[in-house]
Every structure is written in C-alpha cells, then in structure tokens.
Nucleic acid binder design. Structure first.
Lengths: 115, 115
DNA sequence: TTTTAATATGCTTTTAAAAACATACCGATG
DNA sequence: CATCGGTATGTTTTTAAAAGCATATTAAAA
C-alpha cells in the first residue's frame, strides 16, 4: 500500500559561545519583546513566561556577549525598565539574516529529497 | 572592555510529515541501535531510555513513513526482535546525507559571521 | 505442549524544568 | 523623603515528560 505522504525539512539554528548556547530563536523573541515593551517584566508577560526565567535568559545573554545586549535601568520614574543596546539590535539582525540564509538553502535541498 | 569570544553556529535538522516530526537525529540513533542489537529492548537499554518510549517512537516512525522502517518479529526462538526494513536503512542514509549538506553549508556561513 | 524472551500496552511513580511566590533593592521625581 | 513599579534573587510549588512497573500476547523451536 502506497501512502504518498508529504515531507518537509526543518532546522533550528543556534549561535553558541564557548560556555554554551548564546542565541536561539526563543532568546531573539525575548529581545524583540523587551524592545517593544521597554521592560523584562512586560516582555515576560506577553510571552507567557515567568519574569525570573526571562531575567535569567537576559543575564546569560549579556554574559556571553562581547558587550551586553540588554541594558537594565534600576529605579527611577516607572521603577526602571530595560532596553536593547546597539549590540542587542545588531544581534537580532545578524541572527535573522543567518537564519534566512540557512532556511533558503534548506528549502532548496529539501525539494530535492525523495522519500 | 573587549571580551573577544568565540562563536559557532549549530543547527538541528528534522524531517517532518504532515502529522508532526518524522525523523530527527534521536530517532536515527534509535534505528541504528535497533539494527545493531536486533531488538527494541536492547536498543533501549543501550540508549538508556525506557523500552516503552523506544517502542512508541518506532510506532510513530512506522506510521508516518510511506512504508515501515522497522519490522517487528513476534514470538519465536528468542521471543522475537526487530530489524530495519529497506526503507529503514534508506532513511538513515538519506537523513545523514541531508544533515551533512546542511552542516557543510552552515559551517561555511558560520565563518563569515562577525559578532 | 512447554519454554522462551521480546513485543504490546495500561497504570503508577520519578524527576527535572518551569512557574509561582515572596521580598529586598533601586533611584528618578512629585 | 515617600511613592512607584521594575529589577534582583532565594525558596516553594506545579506540571508535563520520561521512566518504571506489571502483565498479557506472540510463535518458533526444543
């Protein structure tokens, strides 16, 4: 019996630093939400993740990066907040550009595959 | 302060069928261990996973494939066993070949990235 | 026709990751 | 100088995936 199913290839991309994962799509989304909302707290809420988790991801990214991706503002008018640094904005662009190149290649290869 | 860290790009590859993931490196390893050991039971032991889990992965793969990748032998001398079909052996080769092409491309792109 | 060891499958228990909670700290500004 | 709401961080609770356990089923071969 021939089933004649449809297959597709999917890849997940990470940029690693010596001490482990540095950037993946999840962290990039977090950066984007921080940029949009102006704080880790609100970014976490929108992403339905705990503040603690979001905060730790930011810490980790900042430590692994050559220069911090997120700048944290303590105290002040609204209690503080967070925003992307230049490096943070570049990280997003670099990641997506890399991911796109890879995905383009993959879909080309994917169409060649016969299962 | 310049940290001058080392970054590398890593990808994980999946082949999906309409109803979800079909083949990833974990399932490929399982197929290889079944081929080596002649049974799901022993493959699971070597991989330190539960028999139940291994068995379910095999079920799922067989259902998603156009033709089963693993042939199960019930009863008989040693109680039974399992072995790869032609399709199963081809699946391993196809997956690795695809994965290699993608990884080659990725490492080329990876060296271009400046962080 | 009994033995055998693996497949097949429901049910319970472990376990590790995430979420949730609590609480101290911060500093601009009214 | 009190308020405010976000950051920072330790502790507890939830939860979902995996492992573990129990047991029925299977058919070749001794």
């Amino acid at each position: 019996m021939i089933k004649n199913k449809k297959y597709s290839v999917r890849v997940r991309v990470w940029i690693d630093e010596t001490n482990g994962p540095f950037l993946g799509i999840g962290r990039i989304w977090l950066l984007e939400h921080i940029a949009e909302t102006g704080s880790i707290t609100n970014a976490a809420k929108e992403m339905k993740m705990s503040y603690r988790q979001a905060w730790q991801l930011v810490e980790d990214m900042n430590k692994q990066a050559e220069a911090p991706l997120v700048e944290k503002l303590l105290g002040g008018k609204g209690g503080g907040g967070a925003r992307l640094t230049e490096a943070g904005q570049r990280a997003i662009k670099t990641f997506y550009s890399l991911e796109k190149k890879i995905n383009d290649f993959v879909s080309k290869e994917s169409s060649k595959i016969k299962f």
